[in-house]
């Protein structure tokens, strides 16, 4: 095949590359420009000063704690669900799949209202908890629940995809070696799905960290108790743009660093 500049083969080779480059440049620009605009607005000295203010340290601490808790909750509860969806066929599976995906399409504020109507003091479930002295709204638990609700689907879907991608040959081999289903899952499927599980966990954690609508509706907004970083940014935005930008940059740096760290966990490669 001729590859001189005018030949069809050359043009055929370069055209897709050109489109790829152009599209990538546009998308990256869309992602990078707002970030750069934020970073350029705040001088590092101001950032460090803000980091010392109690509002910021409280919000940051709360954000990290609750997002970690909700991610662990999602991991714990989501793994069995993903296993169920990956392995078995059962009546109503499609409905369960749609339910799992629902939080992804529901506007977060709507999710918050739903959580309030379910677990609020006079809610469907909450009314039975109230006499026991358990009220969920306005507590840290509510923040964790709200985050888990909106970020759960990411992990479940990623984990399920990871499980389904395991070559059935390995499972058959395990079966011929007389391993139980549980053993096969723990020693064959799970280790092989770790990259997918980590990717899912990272997405879940990121979504939980950025959660706002459901949190402010269900958990409320109280510094030190329920005011996570996104809420702090929103409240600050209403009276002091510079403070809001500074908070945004702090959150940005933390999130980016942690995401980068997760992606570079030693020994794990990403698909």
């Amino acid at each position: 095949m001729s590859t001189s500049p005018r030949s069809g083969a050359y043009r055929a080779a370069i055209a897709p590359a050109g489109i790829v480059a152009a599209a990538s440049a546009l998308l990256l620009a869309l992602l990078v420009l707002p970030v750069i605009s934020l970073l350029l607005r705040v001088p590092p000295g101001v950032l460090l000063e803000r980091l010392r203010s109690p509002v910021v340290t409280q919000a940051l601490w709360l954000s990290l704690l609750t997002s970690l808790a909700s991610t662990l909750l999602v991991l714990g509860l989501g793994l069995p669900v993903a296993y169920l969806l990956a392995g078995r066929r059962f009546v109503g599976k499609r409905v369960v799949e749609a339910l799992i995906d629902l939080p992804m399409v529901l506007p977060p504020t709507v999710a918050g209202v739903g959580l309030l109507l379910a677990f609020g003091r006079v809610g469907l479930v909450g009314r039975f908890l109230a006499p026991l002295g358990i009220t969920v709204p306005f507590t840290v638990a509510a923040v964790v629940l709200a985050q888990a609700f909106v970020s759960g689907p990411f992990f479940v879907n990623a984990a399920r995809a990871g499980f389904e991608a395991v070559d059935p040959q390995y499972l058959r081999a395990a079966a011929t070696l007389r391993s139980s289903a549980a053993y096969a899952f723990l020693r064959v499927v799970l280790p092989l799905s770790v990259p997918a599980l980590l990717a899912g966990a990272a997405m879940t954690w990121a979504r939980a960290l950025g959660e706002f609508g459901a949190t402010i509706t269900f958990a409320g907004n109280l510094p030190g108790v329920t005011q996570t970083m996104p809420l702090a940014v929103y409240i600050a935005l209403q009276s002091d743009l510079e403070a809001a930008v500074a908070l945004s940059v702090i959150l940005l740096i933390f999130s980016f660093t942690l995401l980068l760290a997760l992606r570079n966990l030693p020994g794990r490669t990403w698909r």
């Binding site: 709204p137 306005f138 402010i216 409320g220 907004n221 109280l222 329920t226 929103y234 409240i235």
Partner: peptide, 8 residues
């Protein structure tokens, strides 16, 4: 001290 939420 009894305030549980600062609404926007």
């Amino acid at each position: 001290r009894n305030v549980v939420s600062h609404e926007e």
